[in-house]
Write a protein that binds this DNA or RNA. Structure first.
Lengths: 176, 176
DNA sequence: AAGTTTGTATTCAAATTTGAGTAGCTGTCA
DNA sequence: TGACAGCTACTCAAATTTGAATACAAACTT
């Protein structure tokens, strides 16, 4: 259901890696910005999918690390999950909407200063992404990864636009 | 960490309700589009927060339902969580980005038809929201709830724009 | 050379989320 | 009138996620 399995299988599609490296790879791809890729999630996924035969242990502990590789069934499952992810539109989980829902419980002052702060935070997030978009930075991630960054930026800009629009309306007491 | 607690506390801020009604209320507000509000999550939150003293049982089972109300500590916690939700920018969890990440593992044909399908699905989602925005439908949700819908639509449009932009690029083999 | 930070690699308990199932009640339609 | 659908209200096991803790090695500092 969540994308953790898909991500792990995808990372292991062409190489064998240990849990730590997988997590690193995902971070490189910016997956920490839009998925649950805490170490715990990764290691859990690895042991679970090994039990299910989607992965196999290529190199066991013995002082060294535990390296995983994908199996044939794992590859099939990868394709299945990937197709599903492409075809099925699933809702985006967004903590800010919960904040929005209770807008009316915040004093006007706080609302305005929180929005100001968010606006600044979002702007600097966008600024941080610029170099990646312009191809300045290519840490070895495939080129199409920039598309994730683009989409992310577009979403962020959407929130920013909402904020810029909301601020004057709150000032004029049209909101909430 | 997630918004479930905030949502439950917020719903119970001004009235006492049972688990089922809480879930209904949240659905009315569209929370199922951007939060984890499965029944299990709600009921778990209710029992947990009761144990912690944030909620109290106002009316116990006895054939009837278990009705919860918020306590003073619960109100404090609500304010705390609300402030945090407003000030701290937290990442949005988006399953589609995982799909995007492995774009290169999909044959061009499938990519194009999946995008076509998504585009249609997103358009109809947007169409469904229109009446809510124009104030045609007010099932009793506070007026500022439309702001959630607006923001949601803006995000959806961002994805749609990305798709419209990507389709020709894929056709021209500029992607992946 | 001892002490401190930083990076690698993992584990674990506790918290949360999912998804499916149960059971009672109400309306309705034949 | 009885059977079947749909709504209300909830439970539960299994899966996942979180957040913090651990351990050990390399690098850096004083």
């Amino acid at each position: 259901m969540s994308s953790t399995r898909l991500l792990i299988l995808g990372v292991l599609h062409d190489e064998t890696l240990n849990g730590y490296e997988i997590r690193r790879r995902l971070e490189l791809w910016g997956a920490d910005q839009w998925a649950n890729v805490a170490f715990g999630s990764i290691y859990h996924g690895l042991t679970k999918m090994s039990q299910e035969g989607l992965l196999e242990i290529v190199e066991k502990g013995r002082g060294g690390s535990t390296v995983y590789g994908i199996t044939d069934i794992g590859r099939q499952e990868f394709q299945r999950l990937l197709a599903e992810a492409w075809w099925r539109v699933k809702p985006v989980i967004d903590p800010f909407q919960a904040a929005l829902t209770f807008m009316n419980h915040m004093p006007k002052e706080q609302l305005l200063s929180a929005l100001g702060s968010r606006s600044a935070q979002l702007r600097s997030l966008l600024a941080m992404c610029e170099p990646a978009i312009e191809g300045k930075v290519q840490y070895g991630a495939p080129r199409h990864i920039t598309e994730c960054v683009r989409l992310n930026m577009a979403r962020t800009r959407a929130e920013l636009d909402w904020i810029e629009d909301a601020i004057p309306r709150i000032e004029k007491d049209e909101l909430p």
